[in-house]
Write a protein that binds this DNA or RNA. Structure first.
Lengths: 138, 138
DNA sequence: CTATTCTATCGTAATCATTTCGATTTGTAA
DNA sequence: TTACAAATCGAAATGATTACGATAGAATAG
C-alpha cells in the first residue's frame, strides 16, 4: 500500500489530511510487521515533539476502523500492522525477532468442518510464530 | 481435574492450602470455559466479602505459572480456563456465548511445513470461535 | 498443644495501556 | 478569506493489573 491510497480512504470517509496521519501510515507501510502504540509514539516524537497520546491512539483506532491497519493483542498491549490489501482471506507467519509477517497460502479451517457438524463456526484465529530466514541465519 | 489434584500441585511447589485457593480452583473446574478476573472476583465475593484484588490476581498468576490454568487475551483483558491435563498438544473450539471449550482432534501445523521450509516455526496459535450446539439452538 | 516460620491475604496505592475532555489549532470547501 | 467541522494538545480519567507494608493464617518441629 502507498501512503496516498491510505489518505484517499481517509478522505472518502470524511476525514482530513494531516502530516501526522501521513507519517503514521508511512511508518506502518515501511514496518512490514506488528508495532506497538509506544513504538509509533517514539517514532512520531522524532518529528513532532510533544505529540499527544490522544493523536496516537485516536488515529490507530481510526485506521483500524477503516481497515488500513490490523491488530492483535500480546502481553496486555495491542500491536498494529498495515492491513493486507489482498482481498482474500489468509493467515500469517510472524517473525518473533523482527516482526515481519509472511502471508500463508492455505487456511486450516476446512480441516475441521467434519469434526464440528453440530457447532456453528463464526470466526477463527490462526498464526504461526518463529524466525524468518534472515533472523534465523543470524 | 479435581480440586485435590490442584492443591497437590500447589503443595509440591511449596505453596499452602487455603480455602480461597480451593474455591478458585473449583470455580474454574466447574466453569468449563474461559472466565475473567472480574467474573472470578464476583464469584469469590459471594463467599468472602472484601476479598482483595491482590488475592485474585496473585492466585491467577500462580495457577497459570503452575499450569493449572491457561489464559488468552481478549479486548484488553485476560481470560482464564482450567488447563487441559491431556498431555497431548491440541486446540479448541470456543463458544462465544457460554465460553465452553471443546478440544479439537487435529492440529493444522502439518499443513504448513512445506510452505515454510526456510522459516523456523517456534509456536502457533489456533482457535475456532462460534456457538456450541446448546447455544446455537437457543 | 505451642511456638516458630514462612506464606497468604488485606487494604490501598501504584503502574501501564488506553480513552476521554475542554480548549485551541488547522484543513478544506465555499 | 471566512467559516466550520475535524484534528490536536495537554492533562485528567478509566480499567485492568501489579505492588507493598502490615496483619492473619497454614504448616512443621518440638
Amino acid at each position: 500500500m502507498r501512503v496516498e491510497e491510505g489518505i484517499a480512504v481517509l478522505k472518502e470517509n470524511g476525514h482530513k489530511y494531516t502530516d501526522k496521519r501521513a507519517d503514521i501510515l508511512s511508518y506502518f507501510i515501511h514496518a512490514k510487521g506488528y508495532r506497538s502504540a509506544k513504538a509509533l509514539l517514539a517514532f512520531m516524537e522524532t518529528s513532532y515533539k510533544g505529540i499527544s497520546l490522544d493523536t496516537i491512539y485516536r488515529n490507530l483506532r481510526l485506521f483500524e476502523q477503516l481497515e488500513l491497519l490490523e491488530s492483535r493483542e500480546k502481553n496486555g498491549e495491542k500491536l498494529f500492522k498495515i492491513a493486507c490489501k489482498s482481498g482474500s482471506h489468509h493467515h500469517h507467519f510472524i517473525c518473533e525477532s523482527c516482526g515481519l509477517t509472511k502471508p500463508l497460502q492455505k487456511c486450516p479451517l476446512p480441516v475441521y468442518t467434519d469434526e464440528l457438524t453440530d457447532y456453528h463456526i463464526n470466526t477463527h484465529a490462526f498464526e504461526l510464530y518463529g524466525l524468518c530466514p534472515t533472523c534465523h541465519n543470524r
